[in-house]
Structures are given as structure tokens and as C-alpha cells.
């Protein structure tokens, strides 16, 4: 991990070098970019290849997903290639082309869109490569070998229940939703409302898309507080938005406002321990990645996973009672 602890000065020096190199058409500097885009294992002659494709590892959730999948694949003796599609279906399609041309044995994919990804996954299937989807579903059955997703609806209902309990089942609240084009943004919002709308005394006074982004959530929360200074709670579609909302509340000295997030990211778990954000919903990202690799392994050896295509894994509520047991998207049970 030389790159992650590089000093600013070295980083700048390397920046200069890398810029020149990049512009000259060869993008490798001496340092090892572990995050994405590079083959994370030296090509071994016999080892079969598993290609792991996820959204940008800038989000710790996807980072945890990548790391868990790559570790499990290596443990089972596979070579791995870890790529990021940055939520761009076109880039994802090109990366699947790469997987096909490298004759991958399987693809582990957190896809870039429920409809936009179907053709690319079909393309891999036609080339004889099974895809194992994690985290996000696609809107077609029979294309992927498996779709293992956390149960967002169940998780959001858990989050909604805890939010209502913390609010004392009454008061004004605001909702920050994820990127409107992302299926999970809608599913989580519906999950929250399946619970919250049952309470007549809970009133949603604002609902805004903060696009999963921390700084956007901060800015929007500040504006919402202007219109509704008597806000009692904020429920966010993911943890980065919850952290952004909490930063706004802290600046406005309104830390008694209840904030609930979704994902179970380490930063929010720390915040819960410290009494900041009140609760989140843990998606077992690491477990799902490992399951996908295990099933890929079984499929490669026996041509079947022996399990149904769609598998839904329940989420767990995290609040101050169990925050200490949570590490890197996994909970001690």
C-alpha cells in the first residue's frame, strides 16, 4: 500500500510523472494502484480467472465488496481482475468484453443498471461465461447464473421502524434519497414509507435527492433546515448522505435531530458509537461477495450452483446496542 500512505510531496512528484506518462500514452507509474483498473494478481499459467466488476471503490461499500470477493477468489485458487464501471453501463459493457477476451471463468458483477446491464450479461453468457450478480438485481431472469442481493425492502423497513421509534412515532422529518436513476434509491424510499406512512403523527416536510453524495446532503440539509427549523428527524437512503446531514446538523447545533442511514459503513458505525448518527441498516456486503464467489466456484466445477437464481439476504439493524460488533460490512453474530 505504498500509494495510500504517500506524502503530499511524493504524491505531487508522482502526479507530475504520471501526468507525463499518461499523456505519453502509457499509464503505469511505479506505484501499485490497488483500487481499480489493474490486474491484482500476476498472471499464473494454470489459474482460472474471475473478473470482479463493481461501481467505484470511492464508496467504501463497493471497496469492501471488491476486497471480499477478491480475497475469497484467491483463497479458492483463482486469478482475479478487479474493475470498476463507475455506474456507466457503456464502460461496464467494455469491461465485460475484456472478461470475454481474457476467457474468464466467471464474472462477479455489481451492475450499472437493472435494464441497461441485461445485454452485456447476456453477451457474457453467450460467450460461455456465467455472471454472478451481487448487491443489485437486473430486470430479467435466466441471464445471470445467480443474483444475490441484500433485501433492501426488508432493510429499509427495519430502518423505518427504528426511525419511528427514535422519533417517538411523531414529528416532522425530511428524507434524503439516492440517485433517482438507481433502483435501490426507490426501493429503500418505498421501504421507509411502508412503515412511516402508517404513523399519522409523522409528517414528511421535505424529500430531496442528494444523489448518495455527502457534500450534496450537507448543502440540502442546510436548506431544508431553513424552511423547517423545527425538523425532528432525517432519514437518508445511504450512509454517506446520513453523514452529510449530520454535519449540517452539527454546524447548526441541532444534534438532537434524529439521523438514520443505510449501508452500515464503518464511518457511520463509528458515528453511532459516538452518539452522532442514531442508526443504520447493515448490508452484509462482504458475506454476499463471498457467497457469489463460492457459487461461481461450484458452478465452474459442476455447471450448476444448485441454488435458485434470485437469493435475497436479510439486512441487520445497527444502533448503539450492537455497533461495537460491526466491522467492515460484517457483523459478529
Amino acid at each position: 500500500m505504498t500509494s495510500s500512505s504517500a506524502s503530499p510531496r511524493r504524491a505531487l512528484g508522482a502526479l507530475a510523472a504520471a501526468t507525463l506518462l499518461t499523456l505519453a500514452g502509457c499509464g503505469t507509474s511505479g506505484e501499485q494502484p490497488a483500487a481499480s483498473g489493474a490486474s491484482s494478481a500476476a498472471p499464473a499459467a494454470a489459474a482460472k480467472l474471475i473478473v470482479i466488476i463493481t461501481p467505484s471503490p470511492d464508496n467504501v461499500f463497493f471497496k469492501a465488496e471488491q476486497d471480499a470477493a477478491a480475497a475469497q477468489a484467491k483463497k479458492l485458487g483463482y486469478e482475479t481482475l478487479v474493475l470498476s464501471h463507475d455506474d456507466d453501463p457503456t464502460k461496464q459493457s467494455q469491461e465485460i468484453d475484456t472478461a470475454i477476451s481474457r476467457k474468464a471463468a466467471a464474472i462477479i458483477l455489481d451492475n450499472a443498471g437493472a435494464d441497461a446491464s441485461v445485454a452485456a450479461i447476456q453477451k457474457a453468457k453467450d460467450a460461455g461465461i456465467p455472471s454472478f450478480l451481487i448487491d443489485r438485481e437486473i430486470n430479467k431472469a435466466g441471464v445471470a447464473a445467480a443474483q444475490i442481493v441484500s433485501n433492501n425492502a426488508q432493510g429499509a423497513a427495519l430502518g423505518g421502524q427504528e426511525f419511528a421509534r427514535l422519533m417517538g412515532n411523531k414529528g416532522k422529518y425530511a428524507e434524503l434519497t439516492g440517485k433517482p436513476t438507481d433502483t435501490n434509491a426507490g426501493v429503500r424510499s418505498q421501504g421507509y414509507h411502508s412503515i412511516l406512512d402508517q404513523y399519522g403523527d409523522m409528517k414528511m416536510v421535505a424529500q430531496q435527492a442528494a444523489n448518495w453524495d455527502q457534500a450534496t446532503a450537507l448543502s440540502i440539509t442546510q436548506t431544508i433546515l431553513q424552511a423547517h427549523p423545527d425538523l425532528k428527524g432525517i432519514i437518508a437512503g445511504n450512509d454517506t448522505m446520513a453523514l452529510g446531514a449530520y454535519a449540517a446538523l452539527k454546524a447548526a447545533k441541532k444534534t438532537d435531530v434524529i439521523v438514520v442511514g443505510f449501508d452500515g459503513s464503518p464511518d457511520v458505525v463509528d458515528s453511532i458509537t459516538g452518539g452522532g448518527v442514531k442508526a443504520t441498516v447493515l448490508q452484509p456486503a462482504a458475506k454476499i461477495s463471498e457467497m457469489a464467489v463460492d457459487q461461481a466456484d461450484k458452478f465452474i466445477k459442476t455447471k450448476s450452483t444448485g441454488l435458485p437464481e434470485k437469493q435475497s439476504i436479510d439486512c441487520t439493524l445497527v444502533n448503539k446496542d450492537n455497533a461495537a460488533d460491526v466491522t467492515n460490512f460484517a457483523i459478529k453474530s
Partner: peptide, 19 residues
């Protein structure tokens, strides 16, 4: 530079957040 600087921003923390 838009790409390179963003890349180094991610490399600085290996994609993580300084919380």
C-alpha cells in the same frame, strides 16, 4: 488533469474517507 488529480485523490486514501 481532471482524471489524474481525481485518481490521486482516491489513491491518497485508497478510496476511503478521512472521517
Amino acid at each position: 488533469m481532471l482524471y489524474v488529480a481525481r485518481g490521486f485523490a482516491s489513491l491518497r486514501s485508497d478510496g476511503g474517507t478521512f472521517p
